[in-house]
Write a protein that binds this DNA or RNA. Structure first.
Lengths: 209, 209
DNA sequence: TTGCTCCTCACGTCACGTGAGGTGGC
DNA sequence: TTGCTCCTCACGTCACGTGAGGTGGC
């Protein structure tokens, strides 16, 4: 391998750490870090200690960034690039499993969050106290709300609303519609579904989570 | 609020840190950590420094775990539970946005990984070198493979396969089908789609990513 | 000579994990 | 008296971020 090979048609040129950072979007600190752990050691250093990266170094950085994009740790990247015997298929399949799990977890969380948001949006005063009450009920009944409990919560909300002045109520409604506007179309339709399942007129014992 | 109120029908009883850990699934170390940062301070301590958690403490822990499940940081959880004025709706909506972004990112990554896996599964020798070659081509052509490049890669793979003994080839095929078996049904169908898009007989200039 | 870029420490992040070494209660 | 549970340090994790304080090259 010739370390002085051309990159971008400019033979033998080198890059300073800041230039490389600008071109690749990584920070200078990250490049220092890669140097520290031996993942990317610049081929040249000036007498003052300045790092100069050769074309080969730049290509290695590109590989590093690609593998990093696949979710590999820096240690794993080092293994792959330094020719440690790895089963590439196994490696990628493992990443795939991980990402699938992340997606599933995230979807469950999203589902819960939409449920909570739907409940909060029916509240006149979506305070921390309201959120805690919601959690209280949820955890107490182990992720299941009966109709009576739901109606009790609605009653509590009505009482809270009655205690508010018309000005406060108007402000709450303004905030609520603003809240809706900030949701994406997708988030909105899913929330509608969730809310209709939540409402007591839909049947008995609707599940929240 | 009465800190000695009953929990689980047992009035006035307290829980030791290990008991609490067992019942809630968190580690003792985590409970120590919550104590350290003031998030959950046990109401009682023995003269030897042992922590004793009251019913109120246990309820607070349940709230903590619920909020943690929503993706809040421990600092945010502290704010919510200690009555700092927070807009609950805003808080939850923010979490929702974050989770949506995580899902989108994960899906893009999944897409890429399936593409790489499909390419690797056509390789006789899915080594680290093969993976690097794949990345090389991908990054060089900026996420686009032309048919000629694809055919060149296929040619390289054929040559690699020819260099192998029949025994080695059989072993490779065994590993490949094993690889397929370990994929979920979902992963498999999506990989089929990706592969057919990748194959040169499908049209010109197929995109890999 | 002035900026700009570069350098090396070195602590901080986030939520704990993981020992080390020692003491208290059934 | 033996286990078991508890305790307090205190460093490690992962991939850098963020200053502090100082030097080199166009």
């Amino acid at each position: 391998v010739n370390a002085t090979a051309a990159v971008d048609g400019e033979p033998d040129r080198t890059w300073r750490v800041g230039e490389l950072a600008d071109r690749t979007g990584v920070t200078v600190r990250a490049l220092h870090h890669y140097h520290e752990i031996g993942l990317l050691v610049p081929s040249l250093r000036s007498h003052a200690g300045h790092r100069y990266y050769s074309g080969a170094d730049v290509r290695r950085l590109h590989r590093i960034l690609a593998l990093r994009g696949f979710g590999l740790s820096l240690a794993e990247i080092g293994q792959v690039l330094d020719g440690v015997e790895v089963d590439a298929r196994e490696l990628i399949r493992h990443q795939l499993d991980q990402v699938d799990e992340r997606i599933a977890t995230a979807h469950r969380l999203r589902h819960s969050l939409l449920g909570v948001l739907g409940a909060l949006d029916q509240s006149a005063e979506p305070s921390a106290a309201q959120l805690i009450e919601l959690i209280e009920v949820m955890t107490t009944v182990e992720t299941q709300l009966t109709r009576e409990q739901f109606e009790q919560m609605a009653e509590n909300r009505r009482k809270a609303a009655e205690a508010l002045s018309p000005d406060q109520l108007a402000e709450m409604n303004r905030r609520r519609s603003q809240s809706m506007e900030q949701l994406s179309a997708e988030q909105r339709t899913e929330m509608q579904r969730r809310r209709s399942a939540l409402m007591p007129h839909g049947g008995d014992g609707p599940a929240v989570f």
